Amino acid sequence: SFNTVDEWLEAIKMGQYKESFANAGFTSFDVVSQMMMEDILRVGVTLAGHQKKILNSIQVMRAQMN
């Protein structure tokens, strides 16, 4: 498990989005775990492969939080 959203993004090789997530207010796992595709688009993730990777990881995160 990760301590910060930045660490999580690095771990899934999506570190290039750290600033975008932070600027959009997605700075805690409570918020990130609620993200939908529209949120991912809003933070500027436009590549389908990256969207899928982030969404898949969020689903895993949700499962671990319950």
Rank of each mutant, 00 (worst) to 15 (best):
S1A: 13
S1W: 14
S1M: 15
S1R: 10
S1L: 13
S1Y: 14
F2D: 05
N3K: 14
N3Q: 14
T4G: 07
T4P: 06
T4W: 07
V5I: 10
V5M: 03
D6P: 10
D6W: 12
E7R: 06
W8S: 00
L9C: 02
L9E: 01
L9G: 00
E10S: 08
A11H: 15
A11K: 08
A11D: 11
I12N: 04
K13Q: 14
K13M: 14
K13W: 09
M14L: 09
M14R: 01
M14D: 00
G15A: 11
G15D: 09
Y17K: 01
Y17V: 02
K18W: 08
E19S: 13
E19V: 12
E19D: 12
E19T: 14
E19N: 12
S20Q: 14
S20M: 14
S20R: 14
F21A: 00
F21P: 01
A22K: 15
A22D: 05
A22Y: 13
A22I: 08
A22P: 01
N23Q: 13
A24C: 09
A24T: 05
G25T: 02
F26C: 06
F26D: 01
F26M: 07
T27S: 08
T27H: 08
S28M: 05
F29W: 07
F29Q: 03
F29A: 03
V31R: 15
V31A: 13
V32F: 02
V32C: 04
S33R: 11
Q34R: 11
Q34G: 10
Q34L: 12
M35I: 05
M35V: 03
M36P: 03
M37Q: 09
M37W: 10
M37T: 06
E38Q: 10
E38A: 13
L41Q: 11
L41Y: 10
R42Q: 09
R42Y: 10
T46C: 07
T46N: 09
L47S: 12
L47I: 15
A48K: 13
A48Y: 13
G49E: 15
H50G: 02
H50E: 06
H50D: 13
H50K: 02
H50W: 04
Q51K: 05
K53G: 05
K53N: 08
K53V: 15
I54Y: 01
I54E: 00
I54G: 00
L55Q: 05
L55C: 08
N56S: 13
S57W: 13
Q59L: 15
V60W: 12
V60S: 10
M61G: 03
R62H: 08
A63Y: 08
A63C: 15
A63G: 11
Q64M: 12
Q64V: 09
Q64T: 10
Q64A: 13
M65S: 07
M65P: 05
M65L: 11
N66F: 03
N66A: 14
